[in-house]
């Protein structure tokens, strides 16, 4: 049999119009579920970059003995740089430490007045490639001649990582459930639409239509419904972005979380593209799956 795209597209459009109640049901189901998935993904993107920023703030501070020899400090610093877990090592001298304290206590000069000389130690600030390695690195560093004390927010850090882990897993599980529920909902809606037309399918088969001849208009109709649904969803998502971006930025500035907005925007547009694709694929697959049992005549 010759495949005639124009005939199939015509059939798909005609049935979309003639079965408009079912079409609207399918389109709005797709739109709603894709909107929810999209919204969830955006929140997940933002949350994950917040987590990443928080985690990267974790670092090790090694306070140095006032009596430490410069060679010892230098060799410890060199050794640290050579470790694979370490991203960066900064040396903070006693004077720099005092400057920082002055900066922090600007509003309360009386605190500084009470201090005699410079009681602050010099230190090495070590940031890590993988913040989770903080404990091992701290342990390995312990006992060097130049080092007085090592701090890495023991206890707090572990809790932070437990929290971020839970958030990540909860996100993955929730996303999985959401996708599954959406798929079931959409396929069921399409199945309902096809159930209403099962006689039509049976007649086609009795007149001698091949399975693909029956399938194509349904699949094209499914793609059409999926596309319209996903366009509605991304339209709403886009509007939300336009109207809420400024307040979201303000909120995170207030929280002092420096989000990478260009990157997030890029991810947003990528997400919209994927949603369109998902709509079309779900529509096509949903129709094919829902049609299967009625083709066995």
């Amino acid at each position: 049999m010759r495949i005639r795209p124009l005939y199939f597209i015509g059939e798909a459009l005609a049935s979309f119009r003639k079965n408009w109640v079912m079409s609207i049901a399918a389109v709005s189901t797709v739109a709603l579920t894709l909107f929810i998935i999209g919204m969830f993904t955006i929140v997940a993107f933002i949350l994950s970059s917040v987590i990443k920023i928080q985690e990267s703030k974790v670092e090790i501070v090694a306070f140095l003995k006032d009596s430490a020899k410069p060679e010892d400090i230098q060799s410890t610093q060199n050794e640290l740089v050579s470790w694979p877990e370490v991203a960066n090592v900064r040396y903070i001298s006693k004077e720099q430490a005092l400057e920082r304290l002055k900066e922090e206590l600007k509003g309360q000069p009386e605190m500084l007045d009470a201090m005699s000389g410079n009681p602050l130690p010099a230190s090495l600030e070590i940031s890590l490639k993988n913040p989770r390695a903080v404990k091992t690195v701290a342990k390995r560093l312990d006992g060097r001649a130049a080092i007085e004390e090592i701090k890495y927010g023991e206890g707090v850090v572990e809790k932070l990582f437990v929290v971020t882990k839970v958030i990540r897993w909860a996100g993955v599980i929730f996303a999985f459930l959401l996708c599954f529920a959406s798929l079931v909902l959409i396929v069921n809606t399409i199945r309902l639409a096809i159930f209403a037309r099962r006689k039509e399918v049976a007649i086609m088969k009795l007149v001698g239509a091949s399975n693909w001849f029956v399938r194509w208009p349904f699949i094209l109709e499914g793609i059409l419904q999926g596309l319209i649904g996903s366009l509605l969803a991304i339209g709403v998502l886009y509007l939300i972005k336009v109207f809420s971006l400024e307040s979201v930025m303000q909120f995170f500035r207030w929280l002092r979380v420096p989000l990478n907005y260009p990157q997030l925007t890029q991810q947003f547009y990528l997400l919209l593209g994927y949603l369109i694709l998902a709509g079309a694929v779900i529509g096509a697959l949903g129709s094919a799956v829902a049609l299967r049992r009625y083709l066995r005549v």
């Binding site: 049999m1 010759r2 005639r4 005939y7 086609m204 007149v207 001698g208 239509a209 001849f213």
Partner: peptide, 8 residues
Amino acid sequence: AFALDVIG
């Protein structure tokens, strides 16, 4: 016409 459509 449908019956003829179906058989191409």
